[in-house]
Write a protein that binds this DNA or RNA. Structure first.
Length: 467
RNA sequence: UCCUCAGUAGCUCAAUGGCAGAGCACUCGGCUGUUAACCGAGGGGUUACUGGUUCGAGUCCAGUCUGGGGAGCCA
């Protein structure tokens, strides 16, 4: 049968009237099997949908009734039967089985049970956890959110750019990097100075996994005007928190002829669009999260979608926070970076909605951010959201070559390492802006999941790459 | 990396320094409409690891490993 014509649990739930009193054929995995002497019930999940469908089977209709009764959770089966309405029951409809065929047995040492498991335990069986309700919902939403992001940018004529995963630059300035090499660790070639001789390495120079596609994206923004990247990113920092992973995905739009205000408008539109898209296209999953993961989830998301995001300068934010210094473990003063506790206070207590903090002191921000006229701050923006804190960081980029060079010099960076980045300013440069959105952080925010390890199929964190 | 909490049956958790326990899962049996079904019985343990204190350690002490939470770094 053609794949598109196959009956799935999702199709049945979406248009049950098409199937009532007709014979349907399904295949899937048993989530639950309970029975008495001459009949029983199977919860069948076929992978197409978050919800399962109930299959009723009777001794007098199945010649292999005795075997079906013994099937445990996780077994793979084929089912043929009639879809029947079940008014007044907990489930809207069920399949009265005519025939059940066993495809794959699932022995009794199967680690998943009908009862709730801790997320910590499920992380140790990352290959099996997608078969649970929570992870079924998380990874359907991950897929949908990914699609929504592409849809948002494509509808606005952005060009999707695949920036390199292996980079030749060791100076992107966004964190510790993983080395990429084919050198033999037991016999590393050295130069006369005793340093590693990377001219003997695969690329003839030192290479790393990317920590950001931004610099490459800028090059394409200055040709295509509106571009975005969406790809894997790697940081070898020894971060042991529920919000950090060594391998994660990042979205980085970059727009030429766009200033910081344009940048914020884009970020606000994007957040609202992708949240709204997921809520409308994954109603069952979102209801599950709202009921079992985070009771205030939908209310908070709807608040984000409907509110106009706040905007405040770093300097004004510091003034407000200083009045509440008693509440903070770390006291606020102008010139220091905002701590998570300060960010959350601003968005949760002061604004009670998402807020952009802009124009940070230049000394706590990256070299490529555009210097403001006051000479002290740069055109940076962080988007803070209730419940998490920072979810987006971005800026208008320094397009004035002499100011960029001065900054590179100030930070003791090497001008020649940035020769092509500087060319972008030299040849037809223009003001431009962009930001970075941590994809997993967005998933966490939209699902209510509180650990990044539970929104990545096989997460990589310090001392952990089992699967 | 720092601070902090934890590690007991397949899972989730009890056990005052004094006999190693429960629920679920699993196996067997019962049950004619179940909804994480229900009822009865049974099997299941190097208490993370190494060492120490003690007549006696799951429990106290030291170290190691692993995991959770907080912080830093950041997305």
């Amino acid at each position: 049968m053609k794949e598109a014509l196959k009956t799935t649990v999702k199709k049945i739930y979406r248009q049950p009237e098409e199937y009532y009193d007709k014979e349907v054929s399904l295949s899937g995995w048993i989530r639950n099997n309970r029975n008495s002497k001459v009949f029983g019930f199977i919860e069948l999940n076929d992978g197409s949908f978050f919800k399962s469908i109930q299959v009723v089977y009777e001794e007098e209709k199945l010649e292999n009734f005795k075997e079906i009764v013994k099937l445990g959770v996780g077994s793979a089966i084929y089912v043929d039967g009639i879809l029947t309405e079940t008014p007044g029951m907990k489930q809207p409809f069920e399949i009265k089985a005519k025939n059940i065929r066993i495809e794959g047995h699932c022995p009794s040492d199967y680690p998943l049970q009908k009862k709730r498991h801790s997320f910590e335990f499920l992380r140790t069986i990352a290959h099996l956890r997608p078969r649970t309700n929570t992870f079924s919902a998380v990874f359907r939403v991950r897929s949908l959110l990914s699609y929504a992001i592409h849809k948002f940018f494509q509808e606005r004529d952005f060009v999707y750019v695949h920036t390199p995963i292996i980079t030749g630059s060791d100076a992107e300035g966004a964190g510790e990097m993983f080395h990429v090499t084919t050198l033999d660790f037991r016999n590393i070639p050295l130069t006369e100075d005793g340093e590693v001789d990377f001219t003997k390495d695969f690329f003839g120079r030192e290479t790393n996994l990317t920590v950001s596609g931004q610099l490459s994206a800028e090059a394409y923004a200055l040709a295509f005007r509106k571009v975005y990247t969406f790809g894997p990113t790697f940081r070898s920092e020894n971060s042991n928190t529920p919000r950090h992973a060594a391998e994660f995905w990042m979205i980085e739009p970059e727009v030429a002829f766009a200033d910081l205000n344009d940048n914020m408008e884009l970020a606000e539109d994007m957040i609202k669009y992708i949240f709204d898209y997921v809520i409308r296209h994954a109603p069952e999953e979102m209801e599950f999260f709202n009921n079992f993961i985070d009771k205030g989830l939908l209310e908070r998301l709807n608040n984000v979608i409907q509110s106009e995001f706040g905007r405040i300068s770093y300097t004004d934010a510091v003034e407000i926070l200083k009045k509440h210094n008693d509440n903070f473990q770390y006291k606020v003063e102008w010139g220091t970076d905002l701590q998570t506790e300060h960010e959350r206070f601003l968005t949760e207590k002061v604004f009670k909605k998402p807020v952009f903090v802009i124009n940070y002191p230049k000394d706590i921000k990256a070299f490529y951010m555009r210097l403001n006229d006051d000479g002290k701050t740069v055109a940076a923006m962080d988007l803070l959201v209730p419940g998490i804190g920072e979810i987006i960081g971005g800026s208008q980029r320094e397009e004035r070559l002499e100011l960029l060079d001065a900054r590179i010099k100030e930070l003791n960076m090497k001008e020649e390492d940035y020769w092509w980045y500087r060319d972008l300013r030299k040849y037809g440069g223009t003001y431009h802006s962009g930001f970075g959105l941590g994809f997993e952080r967005a998933i966490m925010y939209i699902t209510g999941m509180t650990n990044i390890r539970d929104v990545i199929p096989f997460p990589r964190t310090p001392k952990s790459a089992e699967f």
